[in-house]
């Protein structure tokens, strides 16, 4: 039985989702610990999330 490529893409997306979730959660922790650094943390969070998101998209468009 051959596994369709979209399943692989789905796995990548699950991984990316977990990754972005962890980034968001850690950012929340960091903001709670140091509210004065909120701006910097948000920027770093967005960048990291954006990079992982890029991997998810790459997987999706590779199979589409």
């Amino acid at each position: 039985m051959e596994i369709p490529a979209i399943v692989g893409a789905g796995l990548v997306v699950i991984g990316a989702g977990i990754g972005i979730g962890r980034i968001g959660g850690s950012a929340m922790d960091a903001i709670a610990r140091q509210p004065e650094a909120t701006g910097k943390i948000q920027t770093a969070m967005l960048i990291a999330a954006a990079l992982i998101e890029g991997i998810g998209f790459a997987a999706l468009f590779a199979v589409s």
């Binding site: 979209i6 989702g17 999706l60």
Partner: peptide, 12 residues
């Protein structure tokens, strides 16, 4: 952010 809908949609 909108990744999962794409996947969900791809199957239906």
């Amino acid at each position: 952010m909108m990744i999962s809908p794409v996947v969900l949609l791809a199957n239906p």
